[in-house]
Design a binder for these strands. Sequence first.
DNA 1: TCAATGACCTGCC
DNA 2: GGGCAGGCCATTG
Length: 109
Amino acid sequence: MKPETLSFYEKVYEVARQIPYGRVTSYGAIANYLGAKRSARLVGYAMNGSAGKDVPAHRVVNRKGLLIGKHHFEGTNLMQQLLESEGVKVKDNQIQNFEKVFWDPSKSL
DNA sequence: TCAATGACCTGCC
DNA sequence: GGGCAGGCCATTG
């Protein structure tokens, strides 16, 4: 725990923090940017450690744009509330206009 | 050191 | 076209 070294987790946190306001991205996109699209699970796993940090995990969703990680959040619709508060339309844990709000780190960074 | 886990993704039936 | 199952890779115990 607390890998202050340049570990995969730290990279995921960094990228997650770079997510613009009102934008979302997928685990695969981050993993791909890190050069390990096969390790999409690691990104989600890293998000586990993001709890309590400045990492907007609510902006990170799966490839389908579904708020799969909401179960890990405090409440049930807290993740949805946060996204809607940022201008992202969310319907029943499903992001609307996912293609529009989708943010690709590989293209932005 | 070995083994098990996990907020996913891709491919195949 | 839709649904099911397996695999990958890094971290933690």
